[in-house]
Design a protein around this nucleic acid. Structure first.
Lengths: 132, 132, 132, 132
DNA sequence: GTGGTCTAGACCACT
DNA sequence: GTGGTCTAGACCACA
């Protein structure tokens, strides 16, 4: 008999051409999932094995991602039960989210400037970006 | 007799805290130098050894950067003479630039969506971004 | 759990009297291996270290060969996992092959003309060439 | 007062993308010029300086080519007068020419075979090659 | 002087 | 275990 558990509906997607290592892509997607509110405290994460099968990668890689997040206090592992999103999510509060948004934005604007795209063009580009 | 040679006036600078490997920082600075028009076809690059001395790194590291750009067809080397910017610069044409812009933009919008920022907010953010 | 991995059955062989540098001989053998169909997309190449031991050369030399092919998009590496033949193999497609054929042909005809052999003689020569 | 001197009508052309070093391209063009009969004993070669200017390369490079051919006995230098094609041209008689033709042909056919072009296709290709 | 090749070896991140 | 980065240094061919 099982209490109802919310299985995190996160859709992990790996981009081999991303450049970032696989374990870091996983970490980011979990963190962003929490930041954006799609994942909440107490949600259960997929098991290492099932995720490894789904993503066709080495279980060790997922373990490394989960482990790093547990060290940060963002995840909590209960042996025999699974991995859950911790109640306290240090560094993932609203403030942190805004800070992260600013960071990504700054880097993006700089890169676009390097590519010769100024802010006005940028806005036009985003407005015309196909919403899917 | 003086053959006029344009020595590229690029100012290489390395950022140890960048995270990106040294040779890749050099590659990017050359590519951006060409994209921005500061460096033109036929320009001569600093010699491997002189740049190595200036940047206080091993010549092999410079050679690795130059070599990758030669494989890509962006640079052309003449042993005994030096390294030059190739006439045809595949991957650095206007088309390629636009493609690159689209790529960066797409990834950025996706990342912002993951962070819970929708397109309207995005535009507002960019508009309010401090222009320096 | 066993992921089936096709280990490339390529037999690398170095010819010290070849004149071509070692790393280039390796590159050519991989390219020809793909062209001839002996190696297919997704096949795993020997590890850098194992090949270095087999060929009794420095691992860096193998790495240089693999690296150049990766820049060209012919190989794809996954650190910690190995080096694989890429799905898309630019420069080894049929179009590129035909272009290469034209290039070699043009250079050959020019060289023969320099040697005082005109096209008619050339055809006669090739027809009489001992087929083995 | 000057005895009539036949200035060699050789048209040197360098191909930077050839791969072969410049000085070797010059050597080959002189040897082929003799083999094909376009250049004869006693013909005068361009001066090092004039050729250097025409080809826009370093005079040392031409000197190196001339020097190597003089060592072989193919050229003869008369200080203050110029460089001439020697009376005796060791290794450049008719026999040598035929041997060279065979050598180039063999290498070409092998390379085409490696590229998947058989002899019949080859003949068709050459026949259809635009004669200029 | 120029760049190219190769070796040797250290240290790192990733799977 | 895998490949990646970087250093140090030797030797070579070329302009």
């Amino acid at each position: 008999m099982n209490s109802t558990i919310v299985q995190s509906d996160i859709n992990f997607s790996l981009d081999p051409a991303n450049g970032a290592p696989i374990y870091r892509q996983i970490i980011q997607q979990i963190e962003y999932g929490i930041l954006s509110g799609r994942m909440k405290s107490g949600d259960r994460l997929p098991t290492i094995r099932s995720l490894a099968v789904n993503l066709k990668i080495n279980p060790n890689t997922i373990a490394k991602a989960y482990n790093e997040l547990e060290i940060k206090g963002i995840l909590a592992t209960q042996v025999g039960s699974g991995t859950y999103i911790s109640d306290k999510k240090p560094g993932l509060e609203e403030d942190a989210r805004l800070q992260k948004v600013g960071e990504v934005l700054r880097r993006f604007i700089q890169e676009m400037k390097d590519l010769g795209v100024d802010t006005d063009e940028l806005i036009a580009l985003i407005k015309s970006f196909p919403q899917r």
